[in-house]
Write a protein that binds this DNA or RNA. Structure first.
Lengths: 250, 250
DNA sequence: CGTTAAATTGAGATCTTTCAACTACGGTGG
DNA sequence: CCACCGTAGTTGAAAGATCTCAATTTAACG
């Protein structure tokens, strides 16, 4: 959607009752292990919507009953500090799930918003708890989802919050590059880069401009393309090697 | 342990086969929902050990079969960047669990090390998978554990990786204060504070010294005590309010 | 009382933010 | 069709924050 301007959606559109059984990304989603009969529409009141970019899905602290699965597009989960600054703590791509915490909590733990035009399925948390009872195998998927959220959170700490701004930006570009192979399909504003890396918008802009001057990347149609992956990998390590040893043998 | 020098342990000591049934912190641990009979020693080969401070438990990427529950003390989970810098991504206090990722992974995702003398139970991951089969209720606990790890990870992003170093340090002090009410039982080196906040050791030291000069806290017997919580809460918000609006109605 | 690791401090070099001005671009309405 | 806006991006300059390196000081321990 995001990359197809002809198909731009400008308002929230109900795309109908989801047919999980024939869903083209079913293999990557929560229900991948479940048999077809578990997903018959009667037992799974799941709706699909098309959201324009920058559509808020839910605010932190709010009570909720809906879990969201991304089919297309990009979602951000963020938190807001008392001083009003926002910090993005997770990016969700197709196949990822937002709001899983409702299974154990009762309120959302982040603000959620689309970054691109997105196609998203809403799953009532009750559906999950019900399916859980009938299909214990679902638990495996839940645990796996949770773990991958955790891994993503860890990446935000070690990759995007550690070292110089240049190093962090290089890591962000490489991470996104990995997801979308080489070119960066995902459109992200400088402001959002700043919110991911914990820098000001201007710093994010300066660093990108800097990388462009160094021929490490170029931008075309609002899309960033990596030219020199090696150099970026150099920059991501920047600062001189620490001499602190590791207590773990080899 | 950590606070009782007379009882200091200087090497790894086997404290015997754990008796989970009578464990004094059983209510806070993974097994809190399980009936006594599930925890008979025959079915749960769980050992308790006493580890001196700075004992490595496992390195990232390593294959493993042991999950660790903290009974006393403090553990850190950290990752090491290619340039050798380490970043602490989680602190584990009594009742917390390290290595849960083995349920879905096969290798550990962090380096784990005790920060204080600690008493820790080792649980073979197979015990969990076996118990899981017999006592589905265990899943609830697992999900809850995972979620609280996630919450802790998010705190590391928003609280400890966002804003000025002063603000981040204030948040760290307040967080630790909350855990240990007012005084900071946990002994943490300046270097570790730096590894948590993503600053240099010297900066961590300077900020603490600064706070001392401002009478916001004092240190006695290697223990930090908060004097002026209000002022710290002021500092944690520092920087001027952002004007960026929120798209979420009140 | 010496030894060692941790903590502190100073000073200069660097990095990052802030504030403000300016540019580029895509609508929108006349 | 074009002038006008508003948003996003860019850039400069100065202030401020943080890092680095090096020198001291402090504290703990045998």
């Amino acid at each position: 959607m995001a990359t197809d301007p002809k198909n731009k959606c400008t308002e929230i559109i109900w795309k109908g009752r989801a047919s999980c059984i024939t869903c083209e990304i079913r293999k990557q989603v929560l229900f991948s292990d479940l048999p077809d009969e578990a997903l018959r529409p009667i037992v799974t009141p799941i709706d699909t919507y098309c959201y324009p970019e920058k559509t808020p899905l839910y605010p932190a602290e709010a009570e909720g009953q809906l879990i969201y699965t991304v089919r297309k597009g990009l979602l951000k989960l963020y938190q807001i500090l008392p001083n009003g600054k926002q910090r993005i703590v997770r990016l969700l791509k197709p196949g990822d799930v937002a709001g899983l915490e409702l299974i154990v909590s009762s309120h959302y733990h982040h603000f959620a918003m689309t970054m691109h035009d997105s196609e998203i399925c809403q799953i009532p948390v009750k559906v999950l708890t019900r399916l859980q009872a009938d299909y214990p195998i679902l638990y495996r998927q839940l645990l796996a989802r949770w773990q991958s959220s955790l891994d993503e959170a860890d990446r935000f700490i070690t990759l995007f919050s550690t070292g110089s701004a240049h190093a962090r930006m290089a890591r962000l570009l490489l991470q996104m590059g990995i997801r979308e192979n080489a070119s960066w399909g995902a459109r992200i504003t400088r402001e959002e880069m700043g919110d991911i890396l914990g820098t000001s918008t201007e710093t994010a802009s300066r660093i990108i401009a800097d990388f462009k001057r160094q021929q490490l990347l170029y931008e075309k149609n609002n899309t960033i393309h990596i030219l020199d992956k090696n150099q970026l990998q150099q920059i991501e390590q920047d600062e001189k090697k620490s001499l602190r040893g590791t207590p773990f043998p080899r």
